[in-house]
Amino acid sequence: MITLKNIWKEYPIDGEELFVALRDVSVTIERGEFSSLIGPSGSGKSTLMHLIGLLDKPTRGDILIEGKNILEYNDDEISSLRNEFVGFVFQQFNLINKLTVLENILLPTTYTRKKLSYNPTQKAMEIMERFGIASKAKSYPNRISGGQQQRVAIARALIMSPSLILADEPTGNLDTKTGKEIMKLLAQLNREDTITVLIVTHEKDIAAQTKRKIEIVDGRII
C-alpha cells in the first residue's frame, strides 16, 4: 500500500553540519497489516512515521502510495491525502482544547473536499458510543481523563474512514492499564475494520502485541 524507497532525512545543525536522522531506509507497509516500528529513543521512529503520514518530506528517496510517487503531488493534493488516507494518533493526544470532544472528532470532515457518503455527526456519535465516550461529546478535552482523550484522538483519526492509522507512542502518556485498553482498541480496529495500523514505540511488550515488528536503530532499519 505504501512503499518508502531509499529514504534519507538530514537536518542541518549549527550551519555546515548535517545530522542524518534516516539513512537509506526502504520499507513497505501492506494493506491490512498490524505492525510496529520499534527502536530506542532518538533512533528516528517519529521522523519515519511523519514521512509515511505525509507530514514531512524526505531529503532524498521516494514515497509511493498505491504505486504513485506522492513527492510529485502539490501541497493541496498532499493535504487531501492526509485528510482522507491517514489518521494520526499522538503520544500527546494533540486535541484542540477550545473545541469540544465532538468538534475535535469532526474537525477532519470540515477540511475534506469530497462529498461524504455519511452524516459526520451521526458517525462521530457511533464511534464515541463504541469507545464509551459518548457522554463526553460536549466536554472539553482538558476536562476528561488521558485514556478518554486518547480515545477521542483515535475517534478523530477514524472519522474519515482512513486506510492507515499511524500511532506515535499512543500509550506513552497513559498508565499501564489504560495503555492496554488503547492497544486493544487499535488491534480491534485492525481486525474488525481492516484498517492498516502502524504503532511507533520504544517498548518491547507493546511491539510484541503486533504481528510485524520493524526495528530501527540510528536511523537505519535492521
Partner: peptide, 16 residues
Amino acid sequence: IKEIGIRRALGARKSD
C-alpha cells in the same frame, strides 16, 4: 502554531 500543525495533520490546506 501547535493548533495550526494539528489542523494541517488532519488535512487542512494552506488556504484553509
